[in-house]
């Protein structure tokens, strides 16, 4: 007689509480230790404490806020403009037969263009000022938003729309109460992609044509081999990304509580 051996093991990864935070702290401690021992050249990769010091100095001098004051409005306006336009176009493509084929042809043709390559063109078209930067971000955000919105609308079970029609709901009610809430998970998932895209394009646009802004600051620090400030700028960008991600997470938890 032998006991039956359990074979259904593995393939079920779990989260270990605090393991993520502990890993980050461990990496930072290890990095600091290696830098303090001289095993890492701080000329090329400054120690974490030096980066924090640089951040504090930038904050006290006001330079950090000056650059943030230039970057954050660009990020907000660019992302918002691209998102609103993308939502409208995505809904049109998702809802109307006449819009879908022509619209998708244009979106498919323009989507693969690396948006960074368009920055010089936008500077020629819209000038070196804020317009070209905002347009660059909006353009980059627009296409993923269209595609995610369209996927979200297509993903709404047709049976729910039929249900609305069978109860004689108006088209506006079906759109507002069935299609939009049904597409919301895909739209919010798209926001995570578009906010990252917007930050990347913000840095690119500021590196090419700006005096103020985190991207311009990082480029300037790099040109001066000022790696402490360069890394401080990167940390700020990272913190912006983390903050946006946290806000989106809260938004998802609130809007998609039913899941």
């Amino acid at each position: 007689m032998r006991e039956v051996v359990l074979r259904a093991k593995g393939f079920a990864p779990r989260d270990i509480p605090f393991a993520g935070a502990a890993t980050l702290v461990g990496v930072l401690l290890g990095w600091q230790t290696l830098a303090s021992l001289g095993w890492i050249s701080t000329k090329f990769l400054p120690a974490p404490l030096s980066i924090i010091q640089a951040l504090l100095t930038l904050g006290r001098s006001g330079e950090l806020w000056l650059h943030l004051a230039a970057s954050l409005p660009r990020l907000a306006w660019g992302w918002a403009a691209g998102t609103v336009a993308g939502l409208v176009v995505g809904l049109l493509l998702g809802l109307f037969t006449l819009a879908r084929a022509p619209g998708m042809a244009i979106v498919s043709a323009l989507f693969p263009i690396p948006k960074i390559a368009l920055v010089p063109l936008f500077i020629i078209w819209f000038g070196i000022g804020e317009g070209s930067k905002v347009i660059t971000l909006a353009f980059g955000v627009f296409f993923p938003t269209v595609i995610n919105t369209l996927a979200g609308v297509d993903g709404v079970p047709r049976g729910l729309i039929r249900m609305g029609q069978s109860f004689s709901l108006s088209r506006a009610a079906i759109l507002a109460k069935i299609v939009l809430p049904g597409a919301l998970p895909a739209i919010l998932a798209g926001f995570r992609i578009t906010t990252s895209t917007a930050i990347i394009l913000l840095v690119a646009a500021e590196m090419i044509g700006a005096e103020k802004g985190i991207g311009a600051f990082v480029l300037s620090a790099g040109n001066l081999y000022d790696t402490d400030n360069l890394m401080a700028g990167i940390v700020v960008l990272s913190l912006i990304g983390l903050t946006v991600s946290w806000v989106l997470g809260r938004l998802e938890a609130w809007l998609l509580a039913w899941r």
């Binding site: 049976g159 729910l160 039929r162 249900m163 069978s166 109860f167 004689s168 109460k177 069935i178 809430p181 049904g182 919301l184 998609l256 039913w258 899941r259």
Partner: peptide, 18 residues
């Protein structure tokens, strides 16, 4: 009567967010 011909669906057709 608000909807003379009214369906009951096989898969219920309930909105999961309501």
């Amino acid at each position: 009567c608000l909807n003379p011909l009214t369906y009951v669906f096989q898969d219920f057709a309930l909105l999961p967010w309501r």
